[in-house]
């Protein structure tokens, strides 16, 4: 089976967000593989282990994304492609990214494309379904289980808590939800081997995409940080009153219940 994983490198989820001159500061930020894409990579490697074939991971980013690709290679991915963007290049929106990925993938043979169901930075959940549409293949999003038998695909999709049992066939694109698997840690020998595996680098010129397909259709007007949390409140009074008050606060003030 020929498997492609689309991956994004994101800020470490522990990073504090700093905004400078209206844009998110990317200096000195530690980067990781988007956690949902980690599930996709794990599933791809598992499917390869079961059915044979190979896994190619593709990302669009600056040269910093190389470390994310190396991690994927250490986990068991066979080939890695970096579509290299200049730091100060025009920011692609979801439409542009989907078109870039489609351009790379169209040149390749594939049965299955896996990705995360969203990125933890932008959180739009668009690139997967958009890519499927551009490639004119079906997709199943937010899957928590997938089985491939010949050309047949059976997946479980998390639909806001309900589980939809879905059948389809290859070629198809699926996006991973938490719970799909438990991503493995890279083995130490795997990390050392991954250092030596080649990473294919493509520039935007190499891809020769029509200008129009990359044109952003939307624009960020402003970025800002949420208001500072007011400092915490130690409840007072009789213990049972405190508990009652806490439940009311959680339900009506914090609205987390």
């Amino acid at each position: 089976m020929k498997i492609i994983v689309i991956m994004k490198q994101t800020f470490d989820t522990e990073e504090k967000i700093v905004i400078e001159n209206g844009v998110i500061d990317k200096e000195n930020v530690e980067l990781i593989i988007n956690p949902y894409d980690e599930y996709a990579i794990e599933e791809a490697v598992k499917l390869k282990e079961k059915h044979g074939g190979d896994v190619t991971v593709i990302t669009v980013g600056t040269d910093e994304a190389e470390s994310a690709l190396r991690t994927a290679l250490a986990i068991g991915v066979d080939h890695a492609i970096l579509v290299e963007m200049e730091e100060d290049a025009v920011q692609l929106d979801e439409n542009g990214i989907a078109n870039v990925l489609a351009t790379v993938i169209k040149e390749k043979e594939f049965d299955l494309i896996l990705g995360g169901n969203m990125s933890v930075d932008n959180g739009a959940s668009q690139v997967g379904p958009r890519l499927a549409e551009v490639l004119n293949i079906p997709h199943i999003a937010t899957i928590t289980k997938i089985e491939v038998d010949g050309k047949n695909v059976k997946a479980e999709r998390d639909a806001e808590g309900d589980v939809e049992i879905i059948e389809s066939s290859l070629p198809i694109l699926v996006t991973a939800q938490q719970g799909l698997n438990e991503p493995r840690y890279p083995s130490l020998p795997g990390i050392m081997k991954a250092k030596k595996k080649p990473i294919q680098k493509l520039s935007m010129e190499d891809l020769d995409i029509e200008e129009e397909l990359l044109q952003p259709l939307s624009k960020i007007v402003e970025c800002y940080l949420p208001k500072k949390k007011p400092s915490g409140r130690i409840l007072k009074g009789d213990l049972s009153n405190q508990v009652e008050e806490l439940v009311q606060l959680l339900c009506h003030e914090a609205k987390v219940i």
């Binding site: 890279p186 083995s187 020998p189 990390i191």
Partner: peptide, 8 residues
């Protein structure tokens, strides 16, 4: 011999 060792 610990080739199964993993980075956590």
């Amino acid at each position: 011999t610990l080739v199964q060792s993993k980075l956590i």
